[in-house]
Design a protein around this nucleic acid. Structure first.
Lengths: 117, 117
DNA sequence: CTGAATCCCTGCCGATACTG
DNA sequence: CAGTATCGGCAGGGATTCAG
């Protein structure tokens, strides 16, 4: 990874692959939302129930952001009441291992330094 | 990972392993600073030269933050001029695979969606 | 040389209210 | 049902200046 042309960078640029991923995961609640989708499709209301403390606005923001990042796909079912479901894309599913890596480091960290300060 | 007691969480909490890791990586420039250390020890001035657009204050903040997160260790060489070097801890070295996972996803993403918008 | 203190500015997040 | 509009508070990040 240091032996990649794209690693020749001296400032944070959106073209760095690491930045791309962090941008996709960016924002409070984002990883929890993704975790929901790793267990299957979800609608707006289902997410609201799974994450009660998450406000409508932020949930809406996150879904839009993840959709734009290529992680989620939006599906409008026509008819009434309006129903929209979201699914992980193939790219979104590839985030599983990424979250796993984040989880693993944090879990190990909890062991090696239970609490500093 | 969904089959872990610590995954029963309905809001972002600092005790979630994923949050711990994201907290360690948090902040602009942080991953670039870590990348420097994956290639060896560095002093304040060396980092300043490697990342010219990074201000003193933010560099200082990042070093303090990473030290507190257990990623870096600080070593004061006594004498004059004052010289301080930083090294990755064992935990810090374990971030290599994490950054690799972030890199891989982002790199793949660049291929599958070169530019949207 | 290696930072810490201060100031300002921007962007995120949350709450509330409203619409197709 | 599934969002958008608006507003306010607060924390992050940059520039500059000062200190051990």
């Amino acid at each position: 990874m240091p032996d990649d042309p794209r690693a020749d960078v001296t400032e944070p640029t959106p073209s760095c692959p690491v930045e791309i991923t962090l941008a996709a995961l960016h924002g409070r609640w984002t990883t929890l939302v993704i975790r929901e989708f790793l267990q299957g499709d979800r609608t707006f209301t289902e997410l609201r129930h799974a994450l009660p403390a998450l406000s409508d606005k932020v949930l809406s923001d996150r879904l839009a952001h993840l959709t734009e990042a290529g992680v989620l796909a939006r599906h409008r079912q026509s008819g009434w009441p309006p129903r929209v479901s979201y699914t992980l894309t193939a790219d979104g599913r590839r985030l599983g291992p990424v979250l796993q890596a984040l989880w693993d480091w944090g879990a190990e960290q909890q062991l090696s330094s239970p609490e500093t300060r």
